[in-house]
Structure formats: C-alpha cells, structure tokens
C-alpha cells in the first residue's frame, strides 16, 4: 500500500506543481521513485513531527498541497495539537499519511501499533478520515485527498495487502464486497437472519472471508468502508433497517472509530439492527507477533469474526 501511495502521489505531482511531500525522516527505499522524479518536492524535516506538521500548515497556507508522511502514531498523535490548531483550525491543505495503521507493525510493539488514530482524528473538526484496504482504494484515497480542500488523514497498511473484491467505486460510499460463494436467493434464504459486516482498512479481507464462511447460515452482506469521515450515513441507515445485525470490524479500539461512527448513526436513526463492534476492547495490544497473529489473538481474523457472529445467531 505504501508503494501504491508513492506511485499515485508521483503521478499527481506531474499534474500539480504545488504538491509536496514532507517526511519526518521516514520512507527509506519506498520514496525512491519520488526522489528520482521530483526531488525538489521532497522535504525531510528530520525526526521532528511537530515542526513538520506546523511547517506543512504554514507552507500549505501559501498555496501548496502538502502530504505529511510517517509511520504508526508519529504523524498523528505525536503532533496532535499541531494538527488541531495549525492544520485543522486554519483549514490548511495538509494531508496526513500514516503507514502501518492497526496491527501492521505487529512485532514492533506498542509504540508502533496505531489503534486509536481513527477516533482521535475523527474528533478533529473538518478532518476527512480515510482508511483504504488495498492498492486501488489507496490510489482513490490520494485522489480524494487532493480533490478535497482542507485537512485529510489517510491510514495505510504496510505493504503486501491482498486486493479486495469490490468493483472500483466512489470510496466515499460503502463498497459492497463480492462474496465468493453465491449468496442464497431471497426465497432460499428466507427465514435466515440477516447481517451486514463492515470492515475498514487492512482487516477487510478478513471480513470478506468471514462473510463467505457464513453463507447458508445467515444472509450476509459485507462492505469495505474506506471513508470513516464523512461516512456514508445513508448507506448505514439503510443497512440498519434491512438487517438484524450490523457488525463492524477494525484494527482499532472499539471506541470512536468505525464502530463508534456506525453506533452514532444507528442510534440517532433509531434503526432496528443490533450493532456489534469488533476491535480492541479499550486496551493496548499487550501481545507481540505478526499482524495475522494479533488479528487471531483479538478475534479479528475471519474465524474469530465468524465465531462471534455464530454466538449471536
């Protein structure tokens, strides 16, 4: 995903002369295409996330578009007030990019697990929050970020994410995943409980697989939700009305991220579905291991998701 990001950005730099990337001393290797094609659009601010962010805001205010780039929590939580006051309050055209959202840096430990970023960034007024699931969604997120006037946060995976199955579509909407096994027709499926699974970012392939595993036991639809804010309110209200269960899955605290956003909408709409939020239950990841290992440990792999839904049915 980070390669898809850099390649999309390089493409846009050809079209937009006022487009820049600021990094806080990260991007070794990955940034090579950008350094070759547009060396003058690359600014390494040093290991100084706070100054990088405020300087990006000041630079953007002069008519530029700036992507700030780092990993994990460094481009967000490390410089949060700079984001709030300098970027967001000033409506600066700054796009914050974090590589390695969620469990991507699993074995590197607590400091590198970004599992509150969506909630924190969502709470900043005027901030658009995007968490693409694969390379195609990433390219669309970069487009949307550039086309959006003002602050945007993009949470990326690390690399090697599988492609997810929906047709290319507007990433501001819920994107319906094609579930491999043909879903039972309305007649055949009559009487089965209905559930909608929503996932965001790198956990989407797990949601996809869980939905496939559940076919026949429930009528399951699954969606990728790359846009956490603004989120597809209408789509969620509709799912809330049509289903008995809405299940959100995220490599994130269940407070304030995708699950939080969906909860707010369903509650306000008085929608009938029961909501189940899967994610970290207000805790730090205490475990060390790969992203797959952590997903399994916290019940966010396809089997964990299926297990949880079977308990409900």
């Amino acid at each position: 995903m980070k390669r898809a990001f850099v390649s999309a950005l390089c493409g846009w730099m050809k079209e937009k002369e006022n487009l820049y990337l600021f990094t806080a001393d990260l991007g070794y290797g990955v940034m090579n295409p950008l350094l070759e094609e547009h060396p003058d659009r690359f600014i390494n601010a040093g290991i100084c996330e706070q100054n990088m962010t405020s300087a990006a805001a000041g630079f953007a205010a002069e008519g530029n578009i700036v992507f700030t780039y780092s990993i994990g929590n460094f481009p967000t939580l490390r410089c949060l007030e700079q984001i709030r006051n300098d970027v967001a309050y000033h409506g600066a055209n700054v796009k914050i990019v974090a590589v390695g959202g969620g469990f991507a840096y699993g074995s590197l430990g607590m400091s590198h697990h970004a599992t509150e970023d969506l909630a924190v960034m969502r709470a900043i007024p005027g901030m658009t929050v995007l968490a693409p699931a694969d390379a195609a969604e990433t390219a669309e997120a970069v487009r949307l970020a550039i086309e959006t006037e003002g602050p945007v946060y993009i949470r990326l995976g690390h690399g090697g994410e599988p492609k997810v199955s929906h047709e290319q579509g507007d990433i501001r909407r819920l994107l319906r995943l094609k579930i491999p096994e043909e879903a039972p027709r309305r007649e055949a499926g009559g009487g089965l409980p209905r559930a909608a699974l929503l996932g965001t970012g790198t956990v989407v392939p797990q949601v996809e697989r869980a939905a496939a595993l559940l076919q026949g036991r429930a009528r399951v639809e699954a969606y990728s939700v790359p846009a956490i804010k603004p989120i597809d309110r209408e789509g969620i209200v509709r799912l809330g009305a049509e289903n008995e269960y809405v299940v959100t899955v995220e490599e994130h605290n269940i407070l304030g991220g995708l699950g939080g956003a969906v909860a707010e909408i369903l509650a306000e709409a008085g929608a009938g579905a029961r909501l189940v939020r899967l994610g970290l239950r207000d805790e730090f990841t205490q475990e060390v291991g790969s992203a797959e290992y952590l997903r399994e440990y916290y019940g966010l792999d396809s089997r964990g998701i299926v297990r949880r839904i079977e308990e409900l049915l």
Binding site: S107, L108, G109, M110, S111, E287, V288, G289
Partner: peptide, 15 residues
Amino acid sequence: QCQNGSPLSGHVTRK
C-alpha cells in the same frame, strides 16, 4: 524476540 507470543517486542517494553 518479535515472534508470535514472545514477551520481547521490537521496541523496548518493560511489560
């Protein structure tokens, strides 16, 4: 270190 279930993460932890 860094392997599934190890107490030793890739950045130092005291837990």
